[in-house]
């Protein structure tokens, strides 16, 4: 399983580690606990969680920030936000990403199924109607 360290990838996709790690955290750390029950050993899972934590307050970070600032042109203004268009689109994307990664994809998929379906249907409808339009235009041309 690949878990993208939160610090190296955040800006890349707006999703970073996608829905995969989020679902893990909820399934493992939340939910009802019943005292009378024995809990399954979670060895291995803890390691994964530690990997995700990155130490921010370090000389490395200071240098990185300094270098990044050095590249900043304050007059030019920040880059335009590439993630503006659609939030639901992002959720669908993270479902699709999880699918290709193959790790813990099912959960993310299940959750985003509704969104994906809605998204696909909307896309089909769109392309369907434009096809119809095109067909009717052609017909008109024939006539």
């Amino acid at each position: 399983m690949t878990v993208v360290p939160a610090q190296t990838a955040p800006a890349a996709s707006g999703g970073g580690s996608s829905g995969l790690y989020d679902v893990l955290e909820l399934v493992l750390d939340r939910g009802l606990v019943i005292d009378a029950f024995v809990r399954v050993s979670l060895v291995g899972i803890e390691i994964l969680k530690i990997d995700v934590r990155v130490v921010v307050a370090s000389v490395d970070t200071y240098l990185r920030f300094a270098e990044a600032c050095n590249r900043l042109d304050l007059e030019a203004g920040p880059r335009k936000n590439p993630g503006l268009p659609d939030l639901v689109g992002d959720m669908t994307e993270s479902g699709a990403r999880a699918k290709t990664k193959g790790a813990l994809s099912g959960a993310a998929q299940t959750i985003s199924d509704a969104f994906t379906q809605a998204h696909d249907e909307a896309a089909e409808e769109k392309s369907g109607s434009s096809t119809r339009r095109r067909t009717s235009t052609r017909r008109e041309e024939k006539e």
Binding site: L28, A36, T110
Partner: peptide
């Protein structure tokens, strides 16, 4: 982990479910 999640989601399709944290064995 996925199976646990799947059971909770499937059973929850028709109404509320109190999900247990993964790993509870009686």
């Amino acid at each position: 982990l996925l199976a646990h999640q799947h059971v909770v989601i499937t059973a929850g399709a028709a109404g509320p479910v109190l999900p247990l944290r993964f790993g509870g064995v009686a």
